Simulated assay, not measured.
Amino acid sequence: MSDFLSLEGRRALITGGTSGAGAATVSLFKELGARVLTTARSKPKNFSGAAFVEADLTTKDGVRTVVDAVARELGGLDILVNVLGGSSAPSGGFASLSDEEWDKEFNLNFFPAVRLDRALIPGMIAQGHGVVIHVTSIQNRLPLPQATTGYASAKGALNTYSKSISKEVSPKGVRVVRVSPGWIADPGSNGLALRIAEEAGISYDEAVQVIMNTLGGIPLGRPAAPEEVADLIAFLASDRASSITGTEHVIDGGTVPTA
């Protein structure tokens, strides 16, 4: 019996691949036989197992560096997974978000995907096939008003943008799908809780409860693990999902109350 899922020989770029769901996706793609290039602002000391390029994707120059590395290291691309994202905006509602904070949110959570797509999708169209996966967030539907308005807005823009380009490029052989996680159980994703705790003068556990209450709870009783998000990404990138495009795939333990 053959393996259910394989990415053997596929050339993949995975952004944000040194921690959390990004790192789990790099590891799984390698296990499934893909040739993987990943990127971050700096390379962790013990990082191994995939080609790596150091670049700041919040800048145009950083995107050019990564695009050049794709050509040099992979000679083209079959799968683009944009995991990069996050937020460092202060809590305090919309009035606490300066123009600089808004720029940071969109430069991290929206424009890297737009710029990489613009540079790399034409090559996929030319070869007649490709898969683009944008990792968004359930916060495009369930923003946390006190802390993530900017982040949620950027992810909402990424959601709409992804749907639009899927209509344009799917007829040309390039599938575009979205993965929208809820809360992921990874230290790198707990920055919001730490920030709320510090700013509100409460404990970390109390801050976690604040977030849980704002989300309305997680019916499954726990957040997703990075590896579970990677499993979904790998399936969508594979031939097993060859008829899936233009859609959003939520992995949130039931947090979003309606589809």
Rank of each mutant, 00 (worst) to 15 (best):
R195P: 06
P257S: 04
F111R: 10
D186A: 00
R41K: 08
S2A: 14
F94C: 05
R11S: 11
E105H: 09
S6Y: 01
G188M: 05
L7Q: 06
G123Y: 06
V135F: 11
V53N: 06
S137P: 05
A157Y: 05
Q209K: 12
I138G: 03
T255P: 05
E8W: 04
S153T: 14
K45M: 13
A224Y: 00
P44G: 03
V229W: 01
V114A: 08
F47M: 01
P257Q: 10
G93H: 01
I196A: 02
V179G: 06
L13G: 00
V26Y: 06
G76I: 08
F106E: 15
L5F: 12
A154T: 12
K45R: 13
L13H: 01
A185E: 11
Q139H: 14
I165D: 08
L116D: 09
N140W: 14
V81L: 04
V70T: 04
A23F: 12
G254T: 13
T25C: 02
V132A: 08
I133M: 06
T39A: 04
A21D: 12
L32A: 09
P145E: 10
A113C: 07
V131R: 04
L220G: 07
S137T: 08
V208L: 15
K45H: 01
L13C: 05
L116Q: 09
N107V: 14
S153K: 08
L28Y: 02
G86M: 10
T148L: 15
S87N: 11
P112N: 02
P44A: 07
P219A: 00
E8P: 00
E8N: 14
L37M: 12
G182I: 00
P112K: 01
A230N: 07
D103N: 12
A259P: 01
N159R: 13
L144D: 03
L220P: 00
L37T: 14
G123Q: 14
G156M: 14
A126G: 04
N213F: 10
V176C: 00
R195N: 11
F235A: 06
L80Q: 03
I79S: 01
Y161H: 12
F29C: 10
V135W: 06
T245D: 03
A119E: 09
A34I: 04
L232S: 09
S238Y: 03
E199P: 11
E31M: 04
M1T: 11
P122R: 05
N46A: 07
I202S: 04
I244T: 12
R41S: 11
F111N: 11
D78E: 08
G76A: 07
R178Q: 11
V70Y: 00
L5A: 06
G173W: 02
T245F: 02
L232T: 06
L220R: 01
L158F: 03
G216L: 13
R240H: 08
D78G: 00
S137F: 09
L236P: 00
W183L: 13
A234M: 01
E8F: 02
G93W: 02
A50Q: 08
S48E: 15
S27K: 14
F235P: 00
G191L: 02
A40T: 15
A147E: 15
P223M: 06
